[in-house]
Design a protein around this nucleic acid. Structure first.
Lengths: 351, 351
DNA sequence: GTTAGCACTTGAGTGTTGTGAGTGCTAAAG
DNA sequence: CTTTAGCACTCACAACACTCAAGTGCTAAC
């Protein structure tokens, strides 16, 4: 357990280091701190903090910087002052959300842009995921003699489409037959069931009407995949350059590749779902993120909940040296705005 | 005019510098060059080349590096040896193109990826543009009680779509009326005429059937815009990091922002269309690209021609210090493959 | 418990010096 | 008249010593 003075000193060290990026020594800290306390005393206290591994030196005679454990302690116990978010920021968010969206994806994509702008870090988001998404609509629209567009709709109101080419003239009767089959077999089923059926029963049925069903099945599969793959968004990628510790291009490339790997990012953000309720914000500092490339970064994740339409996650990836209270406050406020925007948006489709 | 020996020396300097990135001196060059010629002679020749501003020093007593003018001379007069492209590369390209595409965009996007991979530089592409694109198809597909999807098709076979939400229940009669109006007024018209009519006559007509036509008109406008804006593609952005001269993040950010500015890139690539025929490859070196951010880069552009379906451009952005003959050869070969793939692709829609 | 004082450490910056790869020039050789 | 050897000169770069500011830990006095 730390004394109040030790806590104060730890906080001051973190503050100073966050601001300047340089280690701070006892004398400078004594000047900075308003309480009358000598540098020698601070040195003694620092020795204790260092013993508890909350701060560390860069070399024998350097000042101190917070350790990852120090940040952890700070985030868990001390970051209470600055939780109030600037009114101006909230207005900016609302203003920015105040437009017509035609897809949830647009809202989420814009969220990452906004979050990255507000924080100057990199923002990540996963769009709302329901446990049970079902296929609720299907259309085939002939566009010309050789082109057909397939449109799939889910019970969440998500729409994906893709055109495909057919070799020979296909009659509208044939298309209607295919639509009928899909309606009979797949509508109302959850997406994983749809995938399964699409591999087994459905091709047989369709082959009765369509001589070459491959193009159609491929397309259907493709569109189905879009529901799964377009769920992950990144904003402010370039901000990584500002605070990436290494200036070695190979390392930076690796980082960007990681950022593009939906699977990896998904894993990272989902890691401890148990914490992900509506009030918590999970903070992973340095090596707490289970990825070596990100050992100098911190990942703040917040899950948001839009009831029947599922839960999603927004996150901020920044340097370990970050103003946590400010950023956490902002992320929390943003979650609130985003949730209410989404609830509002979905309101249409829920009758 | 240069003597043969001077040309040889210039070529050797460029080769050496391209390989090592360091200035090369007379002695080292004499060792490298197979002909028996003393370093002193090379020094004399170098003095002449420097007088003609084809090579330059980094400081008073350094070796020589090619100047931009030197590269220009090299590209115009000397780069004749290595024009043959590796068979393997061509096979890679063909193999990579050997799949089913549903949109031209996919082909072009993949082209940039492939080109950037083959060269390890950054690749740019503009998809084929016809002077006279006309609207050839239009559909409205109701998806649910509150959602409608609008689909637009051009005479090039390009398809774009977007769903939009409507406040109140709209009957299929109303939708059909709107489709009829669009068919009467807009089908067969060129896109700019469509834009104009959409601003003037059409709203009046539609308002007779739809109480609030705003959502519909906005959507139509949006989709129309997609035809214009999705024309520019970039691949291998990250490769910029490998050869960007400055390691200052602000400068790199600016570069990436330039790369995202469709307008700027479009201008740069189109600059001298007169050269852009099917056999030429335009090479802009350093400050020949009219942009200060790119003064250490070279831009190779090649236009490709798919007959009635228009012309497009593919380009490579790399460091001025680049193996020009190899890269130019590759770009030329790639153009050929891309053209034939596209001709093949469009074959469907031309009956 | 707190503080002043002191000896010690370190990174960052600065000046000095040597070295290697280069140059231009001159005069002799081909 | 072209080519070459020789030579004095230049410059970037690395190595090294030196100084300085900002730290530290420790001890003894308050």
């Amino acid at each position: 357990m730390l004394t109040d003075r030790q806590k104060l000193i730890l906080q001051a060290i973190i503050l100073a280091y966050t601001e300047t990026g340089h280690a701070i020594g006892s004398k400078a800290l004594a000047d900075k701190l308003s309480m009358t306390i000598s540098s020698a005393t601070i040195r003694n206290e620092m020795a204790i903090l260092e013993e508890k591994a909350l701060i560390q030196k860069e070399h024998t005679s350097s000042g101190r910087i917070p350790s990852l454990a120090g940040y952890r302690y700070y985030v868990d116990n001390l970051k209470d002052i600055d939780m109030l978010v600037k009114k101006q920021d909230i207005l900016t968010i609302r203003d920015s959300f105040n437009q017509n969206y035609t897809k949830v994806d647009e809202i989420i994509a814009q969220s990452t842009n906004m979050l990255s702008q507000l924080t100057s870090y990199t923002a990540l988001a996963i769009k709302p995921e329901t446990i049970n998404t079902t296929l609720s609509g299907f259309r085939l629209v002939p566009l010309g003699s050789h082109q057909v567009m397939a449109i799939l709709v889910t019970n969440n109101g998500d729409v994906e489409s893709q055109q495909f080419a057919i070799n020979k003239e296909v009659t509208s009767e044939q298309l209607e037959a295919v639509v009928r089959i899909v309606n009979d077999q797949l509508i109302g089923k959850s997406l994983d069931v749809v995938v399964k059926k699409l591999a087994n029963e459905v091709p047989i049925l369709i082959n009765k009407y369509l001589s070459s069903s491959d193009a159609f099945l491929d397309t259907f599969d493709n569109v189905l995949n879009k529901f799964g793959t377009d769920q992950f968004f990144v904003g402010g990628r370039l901000n990584l350059l500002d605070f990436s510790s290494s200036d070695n291009p190979a390392a930076i490339k690796q980082l960007y590749e990681l950022l593009n790997s939906k699977k990896d990012m998904h894993n990272m953000m989902n890691f401890n779902d148990q914490e992900n309720d509506q009030t918590t914000i999970s903070v992973k500092i340095g090596d707490e993120i289970a990825n070596d490339l990100l050992k100098d970064y911190s990942l703040l994740t917040a899950s948001y909940d839009v009831g029947d339409h599922g839960k999603g996650i927004i996150a901020i990836l920044g340097p370990t040296r970050m103003p946590y209270s400010k950023t956490i406050g902002l992320l929390g406020a943003f979650r609130q705005e985003l949730t209410s925007k989404l609830v509002n948006y979905y309101h249409f489709y829920d009758e």
